[in-house]
Design a protein around this nucleic acid. Structure first.
Lengths: 250, 250
DNA sequence: GGTGAATTCTCATAATATGGGAATTCAAAA
DNA sequence: TTTTGAATTCCCATATTATGAGAATTCACC
């Protein structure tokens, strides 16, 4: 009970803010008998931590971290809403098809897809696809704990989709570890002949992987000569998305 | 970003502890680069706030407040597990039937029931019963916000079960307000002829009502001459249950 | 009842949170 | 646009509070 006064206060702000549908900050200050400046300071800290999301002037909602942990549906909705404009702008800027996906039930769920004209992709938003055969999927697999990865491998098979698809568990494990280590995943015609893909993780501020972002292309130089430049832009976009998941800019 | 250093740290402890299935406190200290004493202090604060529940030496789980907000099922399970021994002891001590119930879908869900021999009650655990005609139900109704109460009244009728059942909305609203104000609810043959019942709220440490606890009896003195004494014991038991919902003592 | 690990306690001190009020930003209206 | 009142951030001297090493205690399992 000693040495935690400010924490106790911050937690009680958290509870009031999340447990009451609507909260005027000034009323809150009165209820909790704290000066306005203090309340605002605490709210800011909670936002920065991803515990609280500021809906608007006097409505608060659970932040990314709480959604991620306690409300998968809400998290997915929030993530696609926040990332969509960034993904769209990015796709337009690159003139390439861009996907954002999360790992769910041992599959990749595509939450956002921005396709460029012409290049027919059969992926659709909210579609679930296998993880082992795409760059995006491999990034997500790379974020799993040892236990989760074991579980993944124990519950499915790895059908060969193209000549390049990795179908050997040991080899895929190695690849996934490598992807996690180097921080990006690639897919060179493993999913479809003539299709190339680069993907990076989208993390929260604590480096926990929330989703992955990929560009797909039919031109090999995107995974070859231009890889470095593509990666840089992907990472910038991923960073922008991370930012968008927290209320402040902090 | 200023004036919240300790809060930031506490929040990061919270996240690590809840987002990782298993956490050795000492490892955590290393990961977060904080001294052991500090980590323990923060964990204690989080437990005290009802955000974290200490499963055992190195496993943590969401505390009451988080369960209540984000996981109704988990909350109910937790509540019945924690309260059952207390309810049982209380029932034995009083030699009366005791119920613990929560408000869910405009009904009362009975989570724990301890009946004394003989006095046949048809309530069963996990059964859902109407709220308007029992002392326990009225306590729970008394904890609703104006909006929730409006919603309750707009979605159901108030059938007359016994001669004493309150079936008029205005009258029930008045009764519910009174119950909330005086801190306990009674039911004098409103649910069953010859059955009397006294109920008090079980709250968390922030005075938010989580559930209600009632004793039922066929002897009118329990709601008459002995009311004061019954109430006192009920409140003690309710307090004990509150305690049991937080890891530490306090 | 013994043993090693986990947890709490202690307290002087450094570090940090505090808060009143001014300054600024915001959002809705004119 | 401009106005306007409210919401939010900023500022900074100071008191308050968090800190953390190590000792003391409790715990859980043998």
């Amino acid at each position: 009970m000693t040495g935690t006064k400010s924490i106790d206060k911050a937690l009680s702000v958290l509870k009031h803010v999340l447990w009451d549908e609507e909260t005027r900050v000034e009323e809150l200050a009165q209820q909790l008998d704290m000066p306005l400046a203090t309340i605002y300071r605490h709210i800011t800290a909670l936002e920065r931590g991803g515990l609280v999301w500021r809906e608007n002037r006097n409505a608060f909602a659970p932040g990314v971290c709480l959604l991620r942990r306690f409300d998968t549906q809400g998290f997915n909705a929030f993530l696609s809403e926040q990332s969509r404009p960034i993904v769209e702008a990015f796709s337009k800027h690159m003139n390439l098809t861009v996907h954002l996906g999360v790992f769910e039930d041992d599959m990749v769920t595509y939450l956002v897809k921005c396709a460029v004209e012409g290049s027919g992709f059969f992926t659709r938003e909210t579609a679930q696809l296998d993880a082992y055969c795409s760059g995006l999927g491999k990034v997500l697999l790379g974020s799993l704990s040892a236990r989760e990865l074991d579980n993944y491998f124990s519950s499915g098979t790895l059908p060969k989709i193209t000549a390049a698809t990795i179908t050997d568990e040991a080899q895929l494990r190695k690849e996934v570890r490598a992807v996690a280590k180097r921080g990006y995943g690639m897919d060179v015609e493993e999913f479809e002949e003539g299709l190339f893909c680069v993907a990076v993780p989208i993390t929260d501020r604590d480096q926990k992987v929330l989703a992955a972002l990929s560009v797909s292309s039919r031109e090999p130089e995107h995974v070859g000569a231009n890889l470095k430049s593509v990666l840089k832009k992907l990472r910038t976009a991923a960073g922008d998305i991370q930012e968008a998941l927290y209320s402040g800019t902090g």
